[in-house]
Design a protein around this nucleic acid. Sequence first.
DNA 1: TTCCGACAGTGGGGTCGCAAT
DNA 2: ATTGCGACCCCACTATCGGAA
Length: 513
Amino acid sequence: MLLVRVATVSREVAATSSRSRKKALLAGLFREAEPADVPVVIPYLAGRLPQGRLGVGWKTLRGPVPAADGASLSVLETDRVLTALKAVSGPGSQAERVRLVTGLMSRATEEEQAFLIALLTGEVRQGALDAAAADGLAEASGAAPDDVRRAVMLAGGLAPVAEALLAEGPGALERFRLTVGRPVLPMLAQSAASAAEAVERLGGAAAVEEKLDGIRVQVHRDGDEIRIHTRTLDDITDRLPEVVAAARELGGERLILDGEVIALDEDGRPRPFQETAGRIGSRADVATAARAVPVSPVFFDVLHVDGRDLMDLPFTERHAELARLVPGPRRVRRAVVDGPGGAAEAERFLAATLERGHEGVVVKALDTPYSAGRRGAGWLKVKPVHTLDLVVLAAEWGSGRRSGKLSNLHLGARTADGGFAMLGKTFKGMTDELLRWQTERLQELAVEQHSWGVTVRPELVVEIAYDGLQRSTRYPAGVALRFARVLRYREDKPAAEADTVETLLAAHPAVAP
DNA sequence: TTCCGACAGTGGGGTCGCAAT
DNA sequence: ATTGCGACCCCACTATCGGAA
């Protein structure tokens, strides 16, 4: 198959807002693909590279390359070049990457170039990715959409399912079963404003579990063989020797466990997320990193035990197995609440959890199965929200559906000398109406136009929600906001009454520099 | 007919490893 | 030794389509 077919279909998918039309377009091309093309075409149309990321980003792709006149590049030739690109390393590798990319681009038409750039940067914004591709695959193969999605989730990706389905038909789906050693997409949680609201929404008995601010892991044990995967299924086994050792101490020979890895102090209090993340990101000298910042696994779910799949069982039953296999200190603390006092009890558990230094809680329905790969309504996370009144210092032009709108705000707090210190940026929490309004308002306040946006007179006050402070080397106060989002503008409030760096630091003494 | 679940898009800060400077 | 890029951790929120109610 020629690359131009994929590029054209991607453009057509992007052009329609109808999801059923997107699905039909994807299905059409899936049917058209030869068996040899399938492992490449399927990921391409889901906006992914079969090789994963290649070490090529915007900067590497910046040089414009004259486009080819006619479409001659095949999907498989493209894939061969990108496989070669992935293998490049060592001194001179950057020049070699540029050489390979330039060679590929020079053989591509303008439309193909645009698609390749989007693919390489991971920004194929066609309004249809994993879920749409799975549905398209179902339509193309005649399999039931739910069965395809389940197989994709169990396989950890679309490509193997697509190959089997298109070669053998719907019967091939039976092969995709939960397998120890093969990671499954983890279940995610929705958000709730309070523990009481979460209990209310679940309507009935619920488990309230502490939410640890670490790295999500899925641990597979097959006898002495241990594998550890992240939320995106990356294998990080080699970075976590102490977690491997801990997993060997558990009950059961063949297990799949879900949990969090976190750095704790001697007294069991959590260290800042930045320390856990730095430790788990360290690959070069694991032994040294592990001595400096040891981490612990803490589990909250189990998907498989010694030949029995537990994913479809109610949480209560899965947790009973977990308690049998994993000792208390290696399990997340929890309380089961029920009845009229349940909401209040959940709030008390949340308060106690925060007191111990943790991030919040996850409230879980007791009767729901493990919805792998989904943001299930049976898990609701609750974290405390802080707010500040900050001053807009600048705003950046948005992209995509926000083109032509001032979107990303630079946020400042007042300083002792009467100026403002930037604490971070945010683009979150804005409705289309608010984007329109702030674009107009900020243009009125603009003192300087840049290619990236505008700087403004520091007069507009905006109420910001955030999850906490983190240390920063980038911002002048030495701290930055974590997960900042807009709640509302405070036109009633002059900038002179906005919050100060001093009060912010006082509110987060543990993080203050 | 209205409601709501699921997806995709729009980007945020930090940290590490690696290559280039 | 420092700097810049890319990958990958953490992530919140809104708009929209289409099936559920």
